[in-house]
Design a protein around this nucleic acid. Structure first.
Length: 309
DNA sequence: AAGACGAAAGTGGTTGA
DNA sequence: TCAACAACTTTCGTCTT
């Protein structure tokens, strides 16, 4: 409990508030009203300097706060200026009731968006930790989701799908190799739904997302398969060349990355079976073979001579 | 026996009339 | 809404190591 902030309490008219940092709540010091509904909207003010601080607020702060804020006023306030026994209410008390009514209306008007955001953010938290997505990437995801929400893209489709899409896109922006199917496996939405949401968000929301590249998948795949450094380097070269020839467009990046690693493995005498590579890359052996053929043909790779180039 | 290869048919999704 | 289509998968038989 530390700093106090300006403003007027809607319940008692008091002007002093206590801020509970761990919960992100604003509490009126004279009547105890939890007045915190704006905290969600003040994105920038949420910035904290330590990881713990940020974590504490992001996780439990917003949703819990809102839940509390709503709880206090979930009943309707009668419009007549009478008290329970029918006597008229006057003076300061009356003004205070009026303010409460207005506040109540406002909360309700924005209520559906808030409610949506609450469940979305908690789902996002769950998904992100499941996928080991870093904090800043998660923030990007939250931002994308908010934009989508503002554009009414969530209407009529599942929150989970749009959340998953936001995380997937945020990962791509931050070049964190998370593939669509990985995200959808952890999501409650199906791969199809997530995919559709990704496309929708991509077309409607103003985010620039780099194209998914096979290159970004190399580090993960190679560590899964235990390739040595030289092999990884060579695989990366192969992909760079392949992209320059334009034979990577429209193909599953997993297949390309897998095939490049497979080829590099042969060239570097660091071989893995197609089966293993395919499994790690989440494609079939056939796809590895097809990409392998494409790559070998268009890059003129030969396996006979000592590969020193 | 395991791995590599390729043909053929099937799947789920996009695109364009 | 439907058909054509591209990418990928499944399945399976055959060759190679």
């Amino acid at each position: 409990m530390t700093d106090t902030k300006g403003g007027t309490c809607l319940s008692c008219g008091g002007s002093s508030f206590t801020k509970d940092r761990s919960r992100g709540e604003m509490i009126c010091t004279s009547c105890g009203l939890v007045a915190s509904d704006h905290i969600l909207d003040r994105g920038p003010e949420w910035r904290a300097f330590t990881a713990e601080d940020r974590k504490a607020r992001e996780r439990t702060g917003a949703p819990m706060t809102l839940r509390i804020a709503d709880k206090g006023l979930s009943t309707t306030i009668d419009w007549r200026n009478k008290d329970a026994s029918g006597r008229p209410i006057g003076g300061q008390r009356r003004a205070s009731i009026y303010r409460m009514r207005r506040w109540h209306r406002r909360t309700r008007a924005r209520g559906s968006n808030y409610r949506n955001l609450i469940s979305a953010l908690s789902e996002m938290e769950r998904l992100a930790s499941q996928l080991a997505v870093p904090r800043d990437t998660q923030e990007t995801a939250a931002l994308i989701y908010r934009k989508a929400l503002k554009k009414k893209l969530v209407r009529g489709r599942s929150i989970d799908a749009v959340v998953a899409a936001s995380i997937y896109l945020a990962c791509r922006i931050h070049r964190i190799p998370r593939r669509l199917h990985e995200v959808s496996v952890e999501s409650r939405a199906t791969r199809k739904e997530v995919g559709q949401s990704v496309r929708l968000v991509l077309s409607q929301v103003d985010v620039k997302v780099p194209v998914a590249s096979a290159r970004d998948l190399i580090p993960r795949l190679s560590s899964d398969l235990g390739f040595k450094g030289e092999t990884v380097k060579r695989a990366t070269e192969i992909i760079v060349k392949a992209r320059r020839r334009g034979i990577t467009v429209g193909k599953d990046p997993g297949g390309i990355a897998g095939a490049a690693l497979y080829i590099a493995g042969i060239l570097e005498e660091d071989r893995r079976t197609q089966r293993k590579v395919a499994k790690a890359a989440h494609v079939t052996e056939v796809t590895i073979r097809n990409r392998y053929k494409d790559l070998v043909r268009s890059l003129g790779i030969s396996f006979g001579l000592d590969p020193t180039a």
